[in-house]
Every structure is written in structure tokens, then in C-alpha cells.
């Protein structure tokens, strides 16, 4: 079977579509980063669902706007291709590597990332690494790699407060072409996992179901749809 590699950025994963909440400094740092300003390396970590993959892709979108070539590499999708995959990445001026916690404990991948880091650094290119845990908690066994990862500024992407989550859901609904009432947004947050990845996926599925049913998204519709399709939340 031939493995299919899809490295396309999500078109809506931009800084404009990101609700910074308490993360405004991080966003400012990354916007500057994508303009070749400030430090050439940083590390971001966050629990899943706080928008880490979104901001890493946003860095690439922003870099493109600034005429810098960039690449987003989610290791969750690339592990199957083997660590050799990282060999040529230092040729790209802006590199964003996501999910690096997944390679912790894998000697071959750890060494490959270590060498890729060194090559990118040596070339004066820019690198952002992203993980679901703080660097010291990822479980890397290669100390050289861990020391490289902690070399730059490291930031944890913080969860949005409820008020911001409601706003974000409403903005996402608007982009999809419908209005999401405050009641529905609060209902979703009160009854389903509160991370934004899950919330946005529920929203997306509600949109699809409502279009198919040709029904407006109302609270009774949401309740009945979600209660009859528990899988919608996953």
C-alpha cells in the first residue's frame, strides 16, 4: 500500500481566526517570528484542544504572507514515514514541527530531531516546536535534544476562559454562515468536553446535520441531535 502524505495547511488556521485569550504575548511573539524578527527558535506546549496546531499552522500562513517559505510538519501524521523525513527540512526558512512528544523514547527519531535542530540553527533558519507537554515532561531520553528544546523561550498555550470560548464558537459559526445563540454556546460548553477541538468539531457536525435536515440550529434541535448521536462529540 502506498502511504499518502498530505501536508496542506488548514486554510482557516490563521492568526486572524485565533482567539488569543491569555495568550496574546505568545501570538505577538509568533507573529514577529514569522516576520524573521526576534529569536529564531521557540517551543510551545499545550494540552490538546487549546489551539497549538492552529497557531503552528498560523505561523506558516503568516510566513507566507511575509514572503518566507515555510513548512508545517505534524509528527502525528509523519511517524509512519520514518525519521529520515526530517533530513531535508533545514532547507526551508521557517519550520514548524508539531507533536514532538510522540517521538519521546524513540532513539532514532530523537536523534533525527536533534540533528535537524542543529542544522536549522546552523543555517540561521527559524524553528518552532510544539508538544502536548512541557519539554521536561515529554520523556525525551536524549539529553542533548532536551537541552536544545529548552534553549529558546518556551511558552504554554493557555486554555481560553468560558467567555472567550463562547465568542470563539460564535465566530466559528459565523464563518460557517449561521448565528450561534449564547444559550446554545453555553449549552455545548456545559454538556460536552470543554476543549476547543471537541467543541469546534461538534459545531462542525451540527452544521452538517442541520444542512442535511434543512433545519435551523436551535437549542431543541441541538439537544435532540446530540442526544440521538452521541458520537457527535468525538
Amino acid at each position: 500500500m502506498q502511504l499518502v502524505l498530505d501536508l496542506k495547511l488548514k486554510s482557516d488556521a490563521t492568526f486572524d481566526n485565533f482567539m488569543p485569550g491569555k495568550n496574546s504575548v505568545i501570538i505577538d511573539v509568533l507573529k514577529a517570528f514569522a516576520q524573521s524578527k526576534g529569536d529564531s527558535y521557540c517551543f510551545l506546549w499545550s494540552h490538546p484542544g487549546n489551539g497549538l496546531s492552529h497557531v503552528l499552522q498560523a505561523v506558516c500562513h503568516q510566513a507566507t504572507k511575509n514572503s518566507l517559505e515555510s513548512i508545517y510538519l505534524p509528527l502525528s501524521e509523519l511517524l509512519v514515514f520514518g525519521a529520515d523525513f526530517l533530513e531535508g527540512v533545514d532547507a526551508v526558512p521557517v519550520v514548524c514541527i508539531d507533536d514532538i512528544h510522540l517521538i519521546a523514547g524513540d532513539a532514532v527519531w530523537e536523534e533525527a530531531l536533534f540533528h535537524a535542530f542543529n542544522r536549522i540553527h546552523e543555517r540561521g533558519h527559524r524553528l518552532v516546536l510544539g508538544a502536548h507537554h512541557a519539554a521536561v515532561d515529554c520523556g525525551f531520553e536524549l539529553k542533548d535534544l532536551l537541552s536544545r528544546i529548552t534553549w529558546g523561550a518556551s511558552y504554554s498555550l493557555l486554555e481560553l476562559c468560558d467567555e472567550d470560548k463562547v465568542k470563539l464558537l460564535q465566530q466559528a459559526a459565523k464563518r460557517r454562515g449561521f448565528e450561534l445563540s449564547l444559550d446554545i454556546a453555553r449549552y455545548l460548553l456545559a454538556h460536552y468536553p470543554r476543549d476547543m477541538r471537541t467543541q469546534l468539531s461538534i459545531l462542525e457536525k451540527l452544521d452538517v446535520v442541520s444542512l442535511q435536515a434543512k433545519h435551523k440550529i436551535t437549542l431543541p434541535f441541538v439537544k435532540s441531535t446530540l442526544s440521538s448521536s452521541p458520537s457527535l462529540e468525538s
Binding site: V25, S147, W151, A153, S154
Partner: peptide, 20 residues
């Protein structure tokens, strides 16, 4: 632990000060 980590912390302080 090491100088890189110290440097990383300082870079973060400087960046935060700059942007705030």
C-alpha cells in the same frame, strides 16, 4: 540545570517585556 535553559528563560522574559 544548564546554560541553554537559563538562556531560554531569559529570552522569554525579554520577549514578554518587549511585547507587554
Amino acid at each position: 540545570s544548564n546554560v541553554r535553559e537559563l538562556e531560554g528563560a531569559l529570552k522569554r522574559v525579554i520577549a514578554n517585556a518587549h511585547f507587554t
